[in-house]
Amino acid sequence: MKVERIISSPYTRAIQTIQPLANQLNIEIEINNQLAERSLSSIPFSDWFEKLRATFDDFHLKYEGGESSQEATGRIVSVVNTVINEGGENTIIVTHGNIMALLLNFYNKEFGFEDWE
């Protein structure tokens, strides 16, 4: 498949993951902050796993300094819709596990926390 565009999260590990392909294809990586991983909270939780699970059950649940599942979904769906509207059918979008799971859930409501896990 021909790749014409690569859009990536600003996180180093995302860029480092796609950089070899970008180099091979001679394509510049576009950085998009909307593709950054979702922040669950600004407070560290010892039970973060259960708190994350709860956000898949209640998409409006939001912890202090964090993003709800609904907000994070809106952010990544916005990127995908922009790419589609620009005719970007040959675009690679590089992001992270939790926000990608939310994107997949947007298109397939059966995709949930256990699938992310």
Score class of each variant (00 low, 15 high):
66 G>H: 02
50 E>L: 06
104 L>A: 03
18 I>Y: 04
106 F>H: 15
78 S>W: 06
24 Q>A: 13
85 N>D: 15
113 F>I: 04
107 Y>K: 02
100 M>W: 07
75 R>C: 05
99 I>C: 08
37 E>T: 02
12 T>W: 06
43 I>G: 08
52 L>I: 10
101 A>L: 03
114 E>T: 05
107 Y>E: 01
24 Q>M: 14
73 T>C: 14
111 F>R: 00
15 I>H: 01
23 N>F: 10
94 V>K: 01
62 K>G: 00
93 I>C: 14
18 I>K: 02
97 G>L: 13
94 V>G: 09
92 I>F: 10
37 E>I: 11
46 S>L: 12
114 E>M: 02
36 A>F: 01
58 D>G: 10
117 E>C: 10
39 S>V: 15
8 S>Y: 03
6 I>G: 02
1 M>Q: 08
37 E>Y: 04
71 E>A: 11
57 D>W: 02
46 S>I: 14
10 P>H: 07
28 E>V: 11
78 S>A: 13
10 P>L: 00
75 R>T: 04
53 R>C: 10
117 E>T: 02
31 I>A: 01
87 G>D: 15
2 K>M: 07
113 F>G: 05
24 Q>E: 15
78 S>I: 11
53 R>M: 11
61 L>R: 03
64 E>M: 09
83 V>T: 12
80 V>W: 04
6 I>Y: 07
49 F>W: 07
95 T>D: 06
22 A>Y: 11
85 N>E: 15
78 S>T: 13
2 K>T: 04
45 F>N: 08
107 Y>I: 07
117 E>S: 05
94 V>A: 06
84 I>L: 15
9 S>N: 12
63 Y>R: 01
98 N>G: 09
10 P>W: 00
11 Y>T: 13
8 S>Q: 11
112 G>A: 05
12 T>P: 00
53 R>D: 13
103 L>I: 01
15 I>G: 12
98 N>Y: 13
38 R>Y: 04
11 Y>H: 07
51 K>H: 08
22 A>I: 10
22 A>D: 04
104 L>F: 11
101 A>F: 02
78 S>D: 14
63 Y>C: 00
89 E>C: 14
87 G>F: 14
64 E>T: 07
